[in-house]
Amino acid sequence: MFSNTSISPEDLPSVEFLEYQPLHPEYRQIMILRVLVFNAVLLVGLILYVAFNGVALHWIGVIGISFLLLVGVQILIAYRNFAYKGYAIREHDLVYTSGWLFRKWTAISFNRIQHSEVSQGLIERMFDLSTLEVFTAGGSSSDLKIGGLPDKTAHQLRDFITKKIARDEEE
């Protein structure tokens, strides 16, 4: 397989077996909080709907239970997902992995990064965590978003990437 290539792919380091840096433990709470906030908004909508339309009592029960179940599943997914998130910085690239049920590994070579940003959402600010976003020319499908980084780490990473890009270009 792929024997015509001059480098044997077996000799190359594999992204699947890297040591990934986990995200800040408090990020798990943020992820769950986000689920709750999102569903709270939904709940308000649901309640308004029920209040204005006069739904029969047993239907309220059915809707309520299925809503709770859905929220439970979302929380479970968020809770489990956290453990699978992590990033690794290698000599030439940045690798990010995520997803409990649907696993994902994304690798971006430093010499393809266009720019990077650090952002902080409302919930994140309460925990003093930040999100690092890395953009390539490949559009949204190839952009990376690493949440749950301590504010300082996020800025350090961004500066590191910026320097790395500059150095790559000098070579």
Binding site: F102, R103, K104, T106, S141, S142
Partner: peptide
Amino acid sequence: IQAVRLKQSP
């Protein structure tokens, strides 16, 4: 190529 991604469903 700009980025490579590996995906795996259950």
